[in-house]
Simulated assay, not measured.
Amino acid sequence: MEGLLVSQTQKRKKNRKQSPCSSCRQRQRQSWSHSPSASPSPFPPRTPNGTAHSSNHHSSSHAQAHTHSYYSHNSNHHHSNSCPNRKKATGLAKRKAMKGQSPNRRKKRAATILSCWIQPTSAQGFTVVQTPATVKEGDNVILNIQGYTGSAREYVWYRKKSAQDPGRVKIVTFYSNHLYQSPSNIRQKVLANGSLIIPNLIVIDDGYYEVQINDSSSQILKGGAPLKVYDGPEKITILPKHVHGQIEVLLNKKLILECQASSEPPAQYTWQVNGSSRAGNSGNIYAISKLSWGHSGTYTCMAMNSVINTAISKNIRVRVYEPSGGSIRGGDVVAGIVIGVLAGVALIVALIYYMVIGESSGE
């Protein structure tokens, strides 16, 4: 009896040695599962008599068709940088994709899908529009968010020098669920739709304003617009330096008057001489190559900001004099004549007065 058991055991071991190895059987299962007509089960299909198909039953045409299947595409091709379609990575499609893959590969694909879901989205679907389009110092402006139809959790506003500037400074965060902004004690205010109000503009408000929308679907949307604050002209001056608004220049010498005013954009300049415009000198420099007596008078510089239609002016008096003898001509001659006439009139009036008084006292 014992000899019979020993012989049967040896026979079973011999049969197992002659059977295909486990790795061969695993390759057979993979080849069967890759067939387009195969069932999703990891076990090979069986014939009506209950036996499994042999691996050599697959023709070369079947193997060629396998290159277009999901499994062979992922095993024979490099992964692209683009994210997979979310619909293919969820539900039934996701469960099918997991079959026939190793646990490590499943983890890698799950991590890829998750990373694609949490990537920020660039500015799409909305714009930021400045209202009004042109503003100056002291005005109020609204940076309106237009075209956004999602459900936002937060609006975060930043300011930077330009759209391409990588550095940005956070201004304010608005929490939509609580209708609350932080910080709350600042000049800038956020409306319920995320738009930003900046009152009492100053020059340093210039820059590019960017809004980041964190919506309820875990997307991050970004958009922005530049803001330009115009000002001036102001602080107007005329060179060379003068005393009490007057300069004195030698006869036949050159005269250069320079007008300066702070303005954004730069001011446009015009000149007037004794109240008459000088179209030929329409810059901030007024030059006379050789002074004559007729150049004495009042010179007016007018600086204008053509964008916001503001202007400012300043006057300076020019006196031309002759170096020999130190006499002063030009405007002083006219003044002397006027003074002489007035003195003569005063003398005549005085003589008449004394004559009338003297006659009255003689009587």
Rank of each mutant, 00 (worst) to 15 (best):
N274S: 09
L143Q: 07
H73L: 14
G194R: 02
T134H: 02
I113N: 13
G167T: 11
Y321H: 12
S115T: 11
G91D: 05
S195P: 07
Q268G: 05
I236C: 09
N309S: 14
N74M: 10
G280N: 10
S115Q: 12
D215N: 15
H79N: 10
Q8G: 08
T173S: 12
V333Y: 08
S276P: 08
S102E: 11
T310F: 02
E248T: 12
A346E: 05
D231W: 04
E234V: 06
V333L: 11
S292Y: 00
K235Y: 08
Q124C: 02
T9Q: 13
N185E: 05
N284G: 09
V129R: 08
N284W: 00
Q146D: 11
Q18E: 15
D231R: 04
V156Y: 04
G362C: 04
R86C: 09
K88P: 04
P233H: 08
I316Q: 10
P44F: 03
S162I: 06
A225G: 04
H57P: 01
R153G: 11
H242T: 10
I238E: 13
S262Y: 00
S360V: 09
P40Y: 01
G331Y: 00
H34Q: 14
Q28D: 14
R16M: 15
L342W: 05
S102A: 12
S33Y: 04
